[in-house]
Design a protein around this nucleic acid. Structure first.
Length: 644
RNA sequence: GGCGGCGUAGCUCAGCUGGUCAGAGCGGGGAUCUCAUAAGUCCCAGGUCGGAGGUUCGAGUCCUCCCGCCGCCA
């Protein structure tokens, strides 16, 4: 077990990682991909490592989270969407930092009534919830692996360490008076696991029972003792935070939604426990065996557990990707809890609003990225409508990267519900295949290479000439058939791409970032057609033939450079495709820092010059980047429609 | 019921503080080159910018009302 780097056990328990059955945290310093590869090659892969952090700098690692999924339902497109969105930013951050200093949490939310009930139905006996969850949770781990999500840990709310987090947070809040015992009354729905107010229930058509207006679930009037959390005490502090911090919630419309939620008359305290008699599958309230911590309180704290709580070296989260349906929990409840943990004061009725501390022990997450949902046929996906797409199947059929591309290209604006359809998926498959895959083949074709062999300059000269608007050899009035201006224009846009790309990603505009990439690729295809470097020279004159060969080489090298930069930017979105291109171009390791992607002045970029040099006479292998083009699905659908 | 948002070419949508704003992409139709294992390129959309009023020299762009969707809250 020779390890090329030092590692330290991160959890309190001194268990060697290779013998621990389930929960190990490793913190590896100064290590590289080979360790990850090594770990993944082990029989269990990374599965018995619940957290792995690679750290190479003193700065706080970037911490990004996805929602943790309730595993009772099968993985669907929405889960994949959250995962991919977070993965794009995780991978982007690695590129930007030029290191793997990113902690990326995914996981499952496993407590609660639904699971308890389902497990009992499944096994026909009680007490086997954990076993039940093990299987369910695995499906989400599979989804993440299949989709090439680069999460560094997969946390489950049923883990021991998480229980300790929940208990500790509870005690601290309780110690400061933010938790009190209250009587809770309302219309309770067992299926929805929540209480409704009078206005939220109605009598069902048969007139025999009350049901929830929203879900139609049967409700019954229930009264019980609960522990309450003083959410109301944090309203002012939260409002201030969201008014001041414009990056706090993205896209901005959701920040306005949050402010609206906080702007209502009063922020009600919320119930955070359930009688244990009804809910056993959950964390027991410290020092009160009759109550179980309510699931959402439990679940939200996973982000702290994932950050190593009570250790704070990863906290706060830099980015929390969530669906808009859980905005309230992440924008109000969790921050209120964090404020409660941070404040040095205890609750006092005399000053019911708790101010946010100057230097909070547990700061709020920097940014919440809230995304909309996927619909199908403009309707919510639901089992009853039978319009639920299976993400695993879809990835099998279309390829992981194509699905990722589609999701981010269409759903990368985050704010509007996007419609999922095979037609659209096919269109986007064809789009990227043509723009990138086909362009790659065009640039690397044998025919073009044959022409280029007669050229004299080296790739660096070509790029330098194109960048500066020169011709090789120099000429006063270039002929139309080999005018380098098109190359110059393309190269300028290629060099502009990374900064545009950075600007978008920095604003969490993934869709727009992809748009810029698509624009460059479109232009590249156009330039290639315009230049037609494969055309036979119009004159037999030796100098003309030579000039043409040079022009063809210039066009080809600018094309290769376009591919290199595009592939670099595309890496967060389509990691596999991107790496294929980068490997073919001779970009070592498939990793390229974005700040090194473009080197406008052609000086000091040693690495760049290295692979440019390599392109001289290099056989960049023509490879197929995508699966076969799909042309029939749309046509068939149209046919059906016409005949119907 | 309250608050907020949306309604622009067949589809998906751009249009910031009112004056080249009537657009892009896709689909569809036509043409064309041929380097491409998967093609590329060019041309073609006459949509009363949901409807009705109003402000203004001038409004998808501001105001009012109405219609239709969608969120959040009650």
């Amino acid at each position: 077990m020779a390890f090329p780097a030092r590692f330290t056990l991160y959890s309190a328990r001194e268990l060697p990682y290779n013998t621990c059955p389930s929960m190990i945290h490793l913190r590896l310093r100064g290590c590289n991909r080979s360790i990850l590869r090594f770990l993944k090659s082990r029989p269990n892969g990374t599965r018995n490592i619940s957290s792995l952090s690679l750290s190479s700098s003193a700065a706080k690692p970037y911490y990004i989270t996805t929602p943790i999924f309730y595993p009772n339902a099968a993985p669907h497109i929405g889960h994949l969407y959250s995962l991919v969105a977070a993965d794009v930013f995780a991978r982007y951050e690695r590129l930007r930092r030029g290191s793997n200093d990113v902690r990326f949490l995914a996981g499952t939310d496993e407590h609660g009534m639904k699971i308890q009930k389902a497990a009992r139905v499944h096994f026909g006996q009680i007490g086997r919830e954990k076993e039940f969850c093990d299987a369910l949770s695995e499906r989400f781990r599979d989804l993440s692996e299949k989709a090439n999500i680069s999460n560094t840990c997969f946390m489950r709310t049923t883990s021991q360490e998480h229980r300790r987090t929940v208990e500790d947070v509870w005690r601290r809040l309780d110690g400061k008076g933010f938790i009190y015992k209250g009587k809770y009354e309302g219309w309770y729905s067992i299926t929805d696991e929540c209480f409704y107010t009078d206005a939220q229930v109605t009598t069902d058509p048969s007139g025999t029972q009350k049901v929830s207006v929203e879900t139609g679930a049967v409700v019954e009037w229930t009264s019980e003792e609960n522990y309450m959390f003083r959410l109301s005490a944090f309203r002012d502090a939260l409002r201030k935070h969201y008014i001041t911090d414009h990056r706090s919630v993205q896209p901005s419309q959701y920040r306005e939604d949050v402010l609206r939620m906080l702007g209502d008359d009063v922020l009600e305290d919320i119930s955070i426990s359930r009688p244990r008699s009804r809910l056993e599958w959950g964390v027991q309230v410290p020092a009160d065996p009759s109550q179980t911590v309510y699931v959402w309180f439990d679940a939200l704290l996973i982000y702290l557990t994932g950050a190593g709580y009570p250790d704070k070296s990863f906290w706060p989260a830099d980015l929390q990707v969530i669906g808009k349906d859980i905005l309230r929990f992440h924008a109000i409840y969790l921050p209120a809890i964090l404020l409660g943990l941070s404040t040095p004061h205890s609750y006092s009725p005399a000053s019911p609003q708790v101010p946010a501390p100057q230097t909070p022990a547990m700061p709020l997450a920097h940014t919440l990225l809230s995304h909309a949902h996927w619909t199908s046929g403009q309707k919510k996906m639901s089992k009853s409508l039978g319009n639920v797409a299976d993400p695993l199947e879809v990835m099998d059929e279309w390829g992981v990267d194509v699905v990722r591309y589609y999701m981010m290209r269409v759903g990368g604006k985050w704010r509007d519900d996007a419609d999922w359809s095979t037609e659209q998926l096919e269109k986007h498959h064809n789009e990227i295949q043509s723009l990138l895959g086909n362009y790659f083949l065009r640039i690397t074709s044998k025919a073009l290479r044959a022409i280029v062999e007669k050229a004299s300059p080296d790739p660096k000269e070509c790029l330098s000439a194109a960048a500066q608007g020169r011709h090789i050899p120099p000429i006063e009035t270039p002929k139309e058939e080999h005018n380098w201006d098109t190359n110059t224009a393309l190269l300028r846009d290629v060099f502009d791409l990374p900064s545009k790309f950075h600007a978008c990603m920095n604003n969490f505009e993934a869709g727009k970032a992809l748009e810029h990439i698509v624009e460059v690729l479109s232009q590249a295809n156009l330039v290639l057609t315009t230049n037609a470097p494969w055309a036979t020279p119009k004159s037999d004159d030796v100098a003309e033939v030579k000039r043409h060969a040079n022009f063809a080489l210039g066009t080809r090298v600018v094309g290769l450079e376009t591919l290199r930069v595009v592939a670099g930017c595309l890496e967060p979105f389509m990691p596999d495709i991107s790496n294929k291109v980068q490997e073919a171009l001779g970009v070592e390791g498939g990793v390229l820092r974005l700040d090194a992607v473009a080197n406008r002045d052609f000086s000091g970029g040693e690495r760049l010059e290295e692979f440019w040099a390599r392109w001289k006479g290099m056989e960049v292998q023509s490879i197929k980047l995508f699966g076969p083009r799909r042309g029939n699905i749309v046509k068939e659908i149209v046919k059906k429609r016409k005949s119907a």
